[in-house]
Each structure stands twice: as C-alpha cells, then as structure tokens.
C-alpha cells in the first residue's frame, strides 16, 4: 500500500497517496482549481504545465500550477478566485 498523507482542500481534510499531485487531489475532492474571470469553475486540462487552468492557492500563494506540484502533509489548498 502506498503511504498516505493529509492536506486541506477548501477547508476539508483529504487523504491521498504519497506522490499524488495537487491537481489530482483537487479532482479527488471534487473541487475546482480556479474560478475564471467570468465566474466559471475550472479544473486541470493538460496535466503538463501548459494550460494554466489548474492554478490554485497553495499554502497562501495564489496562481500555483497544481499539476506540477506534489501534495505534502499539512498543505492547505484553496480554489483560486
């Protein structure tokens, strides 16, 4: 079994396997990564760092491309509004 870790996504605790990207964790949690300029919820599309749709607030830092970031124990992630 892969080792598990916990993080908080929009206030809720989510447990994921070690090695999970923050994008994948947000998909698992059913949370959009960002809200677009006209208010649409968005999620990751390209998975490889080019579309910028997976931008979220990670540990207080906005606009982090979450498909390129691995989850860490205790991380806080919020939808980028």
């Amino acid at each position: 079994m892969p080792e598990m870790l916990s993080l908080r996504i929009n206030g809720a605790t989510v447990r994921v396997a070690n090695g999970t990207s923050v994008s994948a964790a947000m998909l698992i949690a059913g949370q959009p990564t960002r809200i677009s300029v006209t208010g649409e919820p968005r999620g990751p599309v390209c998975g490889m760092g080019i579309c910028f749709e997976c931008r979220a607030i990670v540990n207080g830092m906005p606009h982090q491309r979450t498909c390129q970031l691995l989850c860490e124990e205790g991380m806080t992630v919020e939808t980028n509004r």
Binding site: V16, A17, G19, T20, S21, S23, A24, A25, L27, I28, P44, V45, C46, G47, M48, C51, C67
Partner: peptide, 9 residues
Amino acid sequence: GLQALVRAG
C-alpha cells in the same frame, strides 16, 4: 492530459 493526471494519482 487525463492520462498524466491519472499517473499523478
């Protein structure tokens, strides 16, 4: 893209 996200957990 979906394949990459699956590989990422």
